[in-house]
């Protein structure tokens, strides 16, 4: 694990495993749990397999393999995993709240426009401004083809589909700049379909809403 993290180098501005917000952090934890469990299961299966060449000859019963290992073992593990995944999924949903900030994102080939419910008429291109430490609902739609909205350090991704509005909950723990990506293949300009999320502290956010710094 440490070597892998070292491989990541110095920059983690797009890394889902270097979270900077509660949603991404929850999912990153989920990933480390999944990795640990998967590694253990893989080693267990590899051991069983290797033992076939080592074990002394003798009768082998069918039930422990088919019912014990084939049915009971995965059903137990998967039930726990499914429950964990659904609980986490529920926690990440965009539920209402007094503190929630609503912003609107419209994707097109190959740019993003962002609008703000708290500052009607205000539109930013390829830069999404949010307050740090407050939950933000991004209402996503598309003007042409299907796009994806992904800020890896803050939350999972969600598609922007023409004619539909999808809502993604994200939150930044601290002020700063976070890399954002168009995450659904959308033609020749795909690699450059990026944006930046700028999280402000409380005063910076008020200043942004008031139209300062334009």
């Amino acid at each position: 694990m440490t070597t892998l993290v070292a491989l990541a180098g110095c920059e983690e501005s797009l890394s889902a495993v270097h979270p900077a917000g509660p949603a991404a952090a929850t999912i990153a934890t989920l990933w480390w749990v999944l990795l640990a469990g998967a590694t253990a299961i893989f080693l267990f299966v590899a051991g069983l397999l290797a033992w076939a060449w080592r074990r002394p000859p003798g009768e082998v019963a069918e039930r422990p393999f088919v019912i014990g290992l084939g049915l009971a073992f995965p059903l137990t593990v998967l039930a726990a995993l499914l429950a964990y995944g659904l609980v986490v999924g529920e926690r990440l949903l965009p539920r209402g709240g007094a503190d929630v900030v609503v912003v609107r994102a419209e994707a097109r080939q190959w740019a993003w426009s962002f609008g703000y419910d708290d500052a009607p008429g205000r539109v930013t291109e390829d830069e999404l401004h949010i307050p740090a430490g407050r939950p933000v609902d991004v209402a996503l739609t598309s003007a042409d083809v299907v796009h994806g909205f992904w800020v890896p350090r803050l939350a999972g991704k969600l598609d922007a589909v023409p004619g539909h509005v999808n809502v993604l909950r994200l939150e930044a723990d601290a002020p700063g700049r976070y890399g954002g990506l168009g995450s659904e293949f959308n033609g020749v300009g795909y690699v450059g379909h990026r944006f930046t999320v700028i999280a402000h502290d409380a005063t910076g956010w008020q200043a942004f809403l008031a139209g300062e710094g334009e």
């Binding site: 659904l86 999924g89 529920e90 949903l93 965009p94 539920r95």
Partner: peptide, 10 residues
């Protein structure tokens, strides 16, 4: 099983 436990239109 999700019909009983998971929020249904969110």
């Amino acid at each position: 099983m999700p019909v009983a436990f998971v929020s249904h239109c969110l």
